[in-house]
Write a protein that binds this DNA or RNA. Structure first.
Lengths: 185, 185
DNA sequence: GTCTATAAAGGGATAGAC
DNA sequence: GTCTATCCCTTTATAGAC
């Protein structure tokens, strides 16, 4: 690959990483192209050499955030599902430290977006169902669905409310409930 | 009360009802003052005789939507908690027909707002905990928290995903789970 | 490939007539 | 109290120099 090609790919990834962090934290409408490019160390004009629109950036940023998020969880949990749940349903996730799962950070934002974005969200949710079903082919078993809603819902709702004590209680309760039935490492 | 006073209160309520519907359905950023006023049958210029800012309107609209929502649920359920859950965790709620609970429709929008808005959201959530605790003073019992997350989370997440079949499965599973332990009417 | 400059559109808020 | 007209700022997207 030529130098200019490498340079372009590097810039693209920087833009994508910045977008992933900023969109998850502040939502689609509160982040402009300018914010993303400044965070990436570039200027606004260069954006359209990498993405055709803000909407396209959003789609790719969600996938990027999901990748970073699932890799971050996997790294800490070493394949143990109970530890994975502990890492996901945690105050550090709620506060946006380390990683930010788009399922929980963008829940209601997604409903206002077009079908392309909603498809991406749906695919990521189905991946979570796959992980929770633990090899069982029935990803729609009641326990699997219930646990997925508790995981995503507890993070999303604990982020919305303005009461630290209640937020902590929500996280602890849901964390314990989701871990029920999984084998210890 | 003088005629002009009555007129003003009538206009104010029309604005508030329009704002409640539009904000719940499309979110804070996708609805302008103009949209709200047109929906209410008025023009933009008249808005600031009733509210001092868009943010103030948002706070009041959330409270209004919560009131409409809880009254709508109560009306259909006649005091029976199981029926209340059936009405709330339903595809008609998911699709925004009839009523729209701000807890589930604005979950991630709220995190981006100021403390006043987040306080309102938190108070509404605590009211739900009170209803689910059924007179028991311990609104932070694990079952109460768990049920509240399943109710709000199932509506919020089923609205985000783009797969009708999965959405229906989520609603049915969570509805059944939340009803466990409550007495039939 | 990245920069500066600018076009074009949208929306919050205010002024003043009636 | 409600209307029309307007100010002003933000933001997406494009044009053209280097």
């Amino acid at each position: 690959m030529a130098w200019s090609e490498v340079h372009k790919q590097t810039s693209r990834l920087k833009i994508l990483d910045s977008a992933a962090v900023l969109f998850m934290e502040h939502g689609f409408d509160h982040i402009g192209i300018n914010d993303v490019m400044q965070h990436a160390g570039l200027t606004r004009g260069a954006f359209y050499n990498h993405f055709s629109s803000k909407a396209e950036l959003y789609r790719e940023a969600i996938l990027r955030a999901a990748k970073v998020s699932s890799e971050g969880v996997a790294k800490q949990s070493n394949g143990c599902v109970k530890t994975m749940v502990d890492t996901y349903v945690d105050v550090n996730h709620r506060n946006g430290t380390a990683f930010r799962c788009p399922l929980a950070f963008l829940t209601t934002d997604i409903h206002h977006q077009d079908d392309d974005v909603r498809n991406v969200y749906t695919q990521i949710f189905k991946r979570l169902l796959g992980v929770l079903s633990q090899g069982d082919t029935n990803t729609l078993a009641p326990e699997v669905i219930e646990k997925s809603i508790l995981m995503v819902g507890s993070i999303a709702i604990s982020r919305a409310i303005n009461d630290e004590e209640l937020a902590q209680a929500i996280l602890k309760t849901c964390r314990d409930k989701v871990k029920e039935g999984f084998e210890s490492a």
